[in-house]
């Protein structure tokens, strides 16, 4: 758990980068710091492991004031991932991943085992990659290594500064999914900086939207899309926020509330889609008219029904747009 208590950062020149921010990241949650560039999100993140000093207010980690801890000890208890992955070119992949355990004085055997386990998590062969150097890996692989390096000593808290920002969109989405899978298992308390709205909606349990160092809104992604508290929040998420919010819903939710259409065995040009698919992707698939009929199947491959643009629209209308604030002003 990370608690920000009127946390403030003022630079020597008198510029205030973070102004009295108050919020709590609950244990096991991912909170995304989102906002336009210069909003103070990276500064706020770096204040947690004291790469930036705290000018005023407090940051508590699991109830302990971060300033009361030794900064070196503190950092070793906090996983840290940065955009450029920050791998050390003079060390092999194994040495890179095992830095913090090494600094903490783990035994050789423990390190070996831990490395194997971490490499398994990201489906990379520990034998094959362990002795290689960072430059011999692809960008996506390097970033994965950066992530497991932060997880190496099993810290309760992780800080991630646009960790997937430098990757191309396809790889990024894959690694985001992979990371969410890992998170289901490890349940870390994560503070995550992003400037990408889609990424924030995808990854976050809650989003902190910042502007000019001030907290504008702290809410779950769907609340923020559906009930923006101010004009700034509304504009930030854009006119297409209704469509964006579709990515928070799956076909199963739609099925439960509205139901699916009957499918026609006579139509031969069909494609199938898993019932756990999110509605935003489903909609774009429908709009692309990849086939005459889209049949929804469950994990066992049983056909549940057909889905059409009309049905998605209906769901959007009743379930999302029906929420009062959007009808009034949206």
């Amino acid at each position: 758990m990370i608690t920000f208590d009127k946390t403030t950062k003022t630079y020597d020149g008198g510029v205030t980068a973070v102004k009295g921010v108050d919020f709590t990241v609950e244990k096991g949650e991912i909170v995304v710091l989102l906002g336009p560039s210069g909003c103070g999100k990276t500064t706020l993140l770096r204040m947690v492991n004291r790469l930036e000093s705290i000018s005023d207010g407090k940051i508590m980690i699991d109830g302990e004031d971060s300033m009361s801890l030794d900064s070196i000890e503190l950092r070793r208890k906090i996983g840290y991932v940065i955009q450029s992955n920050g791998l050390f070119p003079n060390m092999t992949i194994e040495e890179n991943v095992m830095i913090v355990p090494d600094l903490l004085g783990w035994s050789k055997k423990d390190k070996k085992e831990r490395f194997k386990k971490l490499m398994n998590m990201i489906s990379m062969d520990s034998e094959k990659f362990g002795k290689r150097y960072p430059h011999e890996l692809s960008g996506g692989q390097q970033q994965r290594i950066g992530v497991i390096r932060a997880l190496a000593a099993d810290p309760p808290v992780m800080l991630m500064d646009e960790p997937f920002g430098a990757l191309d969109p396809i790889i990024r989405e894959k690694i985001q999914d992979e990371f969410l899978q890992i998170q289901k298992e490890v349940k870390k308390t994560i503070l995550f900086v992003s400037h990408d709205i889609d990424e924030a909606i995808r990854m976050a349990d809650k989003i902190v939207l910042l502007r000019g160092g001030e907290l504008m809104q702290y809410d779950t992604p769907s609340e923020m899309l559906v009930r923006p508290k101010s004009e700034f929040v509304r504009e930030f998420f854009g006119k297409d926020r209704a469509i964006k919010s579709l990515s928070l819903h799956t076909i199963r939710e739609l099925q439960d509330i509205i139901g699916l259409a009957e499918f026609d065995e006579g139509i031969t040009d069909t494609i199938t889609i898993n019932v756990n698919h999110d509605l935003r992707n489903t909609l774009s698939m429908l709009l692309n008219q990849e086939a005459d009929q889209v049949i929804v199947v469950d994990d066992e491959g049983n056909k549940l029904g057909a889905i059409t643009i009309d049905i998605v629209q209906k769901y959007l209308h009743f379930e999302i747009k029906a929420k009062p604030t959007l009808v009034e002003k949206g």
Partner: peptide
């Protein structure tokens, strides 16, 4: 960025010097 990562991972200045900067 590399130096930043070294500090963020909790290396002491002397560890940073010998493990990252000098190599």
């Amino acid at each position: 960025e590399m130096r930043d990562a070294a500090i963020g991972l909790g290396m002491k200045p002397i560890q940073r010097l010998f493990r990252v900067e000098i190599p």
